[in-house]
């Protein structure tokens, strides 16, 4: 009794039926664009003085349990990084002569990896504001969003028996009224309803508004002082298909924890493959039919004749 080489290949061929489609990404994934009224933030590291008013304001506005872990005596709001108690943080970066503060929070990607990972759209993009929002009631706590976020933003309450995902939602819980054109030319909510970090910032190092306005403002600043900013570039304009939080810096972005990812949205490959295989659910159904047909044809001989004879001789 032998298993021929041919039959092994047949197994593999059968197995490959449904995955083969992945090799031919027939239809390239559509590039997503930000909603027209997408709300975003613009952080300018050259303006930030590291006062951390935004850290305290965020913690308070989001009713977060203070994270005191960063300093041994536990007296301060001292997170080391974004975590289950921290949605916004100011970090410090020193590189030779250069130094800079940098603010970290959700980037509100135009094509977010976390939302692509989420099974029941617990994490999803608000159709109007583009804010990546989180509804705990649809969350099973699988933490796939944490794996899928290129910026390592969604955090999990590992310290709780009944945990949730924690991430910046641009203070959407504070919003009651519609955003209007503000006196400073940016889209504004009434005071107390906008992102707490932006409202409290004493130097307007971080401001909010519509993404378009902020992008224009960023380019205005670059044009105004051409040598001030790193590569004269706005981080988040194109990175990973664009983010709604934009960064300007005098230092290389990679040093600030903003890696150079390129322009392709992070879920692109996974989606091209997944949709290639499951488009319309045709391939799985066809495979099911084929399998059933072969089982029907082979079942009898498989279970009686051949099988018993193979027993012992």
């Amino acid at each position: 009794m032998k298993v021929s080489r041919r039959s092994v290949l047949k197994v593999l061929a059968a197995a490959a039926v449904s995955t083969a489609a992945s090799a031919v990404p027939a239809i390239a994934r559509e590039r997503k664009v930000a909603p027209a009224k997408a709300i975003g933030m613009l952080y300018d590291s050259t303006r930030c003085i590291g006062c951390k008013a935004c850290v305290a304001a965020c913690s308070e506005a989001n009713h977060l349990e203070p994270d005191r872990s960063g300093i041994a005596d536990g007296l301060h709001l001292a997170p080391v990084d974004l975590n289950g108690r921290t949605k916004n943080i100011i970090k410090f970066c020193q590189d030779g002569e250069q130094q800079s503060f940098v603010k970290s929070q959700c980037m509100h990607c135009i094509d977010p990896g976390c939302a692509s990972a989420c099974m029941l759209h617990s994490l999803h993009k608000n159709e109007r504001t583009g804010v990546v929002e989180y509804d705990p009631q649809w969350c099973v706590g699988c933490r796939y969003c944490q794996m899928a976020c290129p910026f390592n933003v969604p955090k999990f309450e590992f310290h709780k028996a009944l945990p949730k995902i924690v991430k910046c939602e641009l203070c959407r819980h504070r919003v009651q009224d519609a955003a209007v054109a503000g006196a400073d030319g940016f889209t504004r909510y009434p005071r107390g309803q906008g992102p707490a970090c932006c409202e409290v910032c004493p130097r307007s190092a971080v401001i909010y508004g519509s993404r378009e306005e902020l992008l224009a403002e960023a380019h205005r600043r670059i044009a105004e002082s051409p040598n001030k900013y790193y590569q004269g570039r706005v981080y988040g304009e194109k990175e990973l298909g664009g983010t709604q939080v934009l960064y300007l810096s005098h230092m290389p972005f990679a040093k600030l924890g903003l890696p150079e990812f390129g322009d392709k949205p992070s879920p692109d490959v996974a989606y091209t493959v997944q949709e290639g295989i499951y488009r319309g659910f045709i391939a799985p159904l066809a495979l099911y039919g084929a399998l059933a047909a072969m089982v029907m044809k082979n079942k009898k001989s498989a279970e009686s004749g051949d099988g018993a004879k193979g027993g012992r001789s």
Binding site: E60, L77, K91, F92, V102
Partner: peptide
């Protein structure tokens, strides 16, 4: 105890070990 602590005047580094 300090009910609502505020940030210290130190900063975490961008790549702090965790």
């Amino acid at each position: 105890p300090i009910d609502r602590p505020t940030p210290p005047d130190t900063y975490p580094a961008v790549g702090a070990k965790q």
